[in-house]
Amino acid sequence: MEKQRKDGKAEPVVIGGMVLDIQATSSIPPHPRTTCPGKIHYVRGGVARNIAECMSNLGAEPFMISALGFDMAGKLLLEHWKSAKLPTEGIRRHQDIKTPTVCHILDATGEVAAGVASVEAVEMFLTPEWIQQFKHKIHSAPILMVDANLSPPALEASCQIAAESNVPVWFEPVSIAKSKRIAPVVKYVTFASPNEDELIAMANALSSDNMFRPIERNNCSMNTLFQMLKPAIWLLLEKGVKILVVTIGSDGVLLCSKGEPSSWSIGLEKTKRLGLSGRLFETMTSSHPSNWYSDVNVLERSPYFLAVHFPALPASVVRLTGAGDCLVGGMLASLCAGLDVMQSAAIGIVAAKASVEVDSNVPSQFCLATIAGDARMVYSAAKVLPNQSKL
């Protein structure tokens, strides 16, 4: 493990679903009980797979632990993985595996209107025993990302292996229903990335009386939205999550932390600054962060509860299905390159913008100069939210 730290070969580990997305967009308002004209796309998907591909395209070289069948969908997903020269040893193949597939019906804005998911193989075949075979990879990783498609026993096994070597864990909730799987493993979680609805579901799963209700935004201000979400955010931080990345759609991201202001400078012990990762680090640190971020002194005066709003960037939207995954992938790649949480959040938002402007869930490539320029804009526009006090 020590050798991997020194030569830069420690790989972030991503565990979760690789999925074929069938995305159908109607060209007219759909009617029940009949077909309508439109377009159908086959897109490489899956929360963990999307995140890992985004990380790879930003130079992070993740090690993927997943499961695929020998069917058409499995072959399509695996061929692309091999073409990207990413390791396949962690991808379980078996004749009984039906490759996870999701069919999305998209509305005219690119949002998911309805869908059907067949992802049982992730729970059935990504077992604790399979994951245990790669514990040496997890022990030497800079960070472990798990998605909530995993069964509760597999989630717990993954987190326990990471804890043995103090490897930070990123929990990606996937959906409202599956987000509740954080409850047994919350004590292991360093980062979590829910949207508003997943945040409420996670808070209810961690409380005894389902005290949190879905948020009705009604065009409220950012400060008002934050005050509505704050009790649920605080509960997750109290239960042990160190950094909460709450995605709020076209309004961007709320980055929240409990404790000392040093939380914002949290970095990974094992980072890689070779190749594209090295160029990403150099590009982002060429300007001192204090030159970008005007509220840095406010952070230093906030002893208990810190929350920063990072605005989203304007985008020419083609499809929204990969935005959240690329946000996480961008942040993880940045952390693995040695950047801090604030810089990583800005890059995550830029990666999310790039994803909504292409047909695929993940852009095939990123321009570092564009990333750096856009990230500086996001970073300089970030604002500490008021009333940063202990609840």
Rank of each mutant, 00 (worst) to 15 (best):
M1E: 03
V13I: 05
I15A: 04
L20H: 02
I22C: 09
S27P: 05
P30L: 09
H31F: 13
T34D: 07
T35L: 04
T35H: 09
Y42V: 04
R44Y: 13
A48L: 07
N57E: 14
L58K: 04
G59S: 09
A60R: 01
E61C: 03
I65Q: 06
A67E: 01
L68V: 10
D71I: 14
D71Y: 12
A73R: 00
L76E: 08
K82Q: 13
E89W: 02
I105Q: 00
I105W: 00
L106R: 00
D107Y: 07
A108E: 10
T109I: 01
G115M: 01
L126W: 12
E129S: 09
W130G: 02
K135A: 05
A141L: 08
V146Y: 14
A148W: 10
S151I: 05
P153F: 12
S158G: 07
S158W: 07
Q160D: 09
N166K: 15
P173I: 06
V174Q: 05
K180N: 03
P184H: 13
V186A: 09
A192N: 03
A201F: 00
D209W: 13
M211V: 08
I215C: 11
E216P: 05
L225D: 03
L225C: 04
L225S: 02
L229I: 09
K239I: 13
G240T: 06
S250P: 02
D251S: 15
G252K: 12
E260D: 15
E260W: 04
E260Y: 11
L268E: 10
R273K: 13
G275D: 12
R279K: 14
M284F: 10
P289W: 12
S290F: 15
V296I: 14
V296A: 11
V298N: 11
V298G: 00
P303D: 08
F305T: 01
R319A: 11
L320S: 09
G329K: 06
L335P: 09
A345Q: 00
V350F: 08
A351G: 07
A352Q: 04
S355D: 10
S355W: 06
N361D: 11
S364A: 09
C367K: 02
A369H: 15
G373Q: 08
R376H: 10
V378L: 01
V378P: 07
S380G: 01
L385K: 08
N387K: 11
L391M: 12
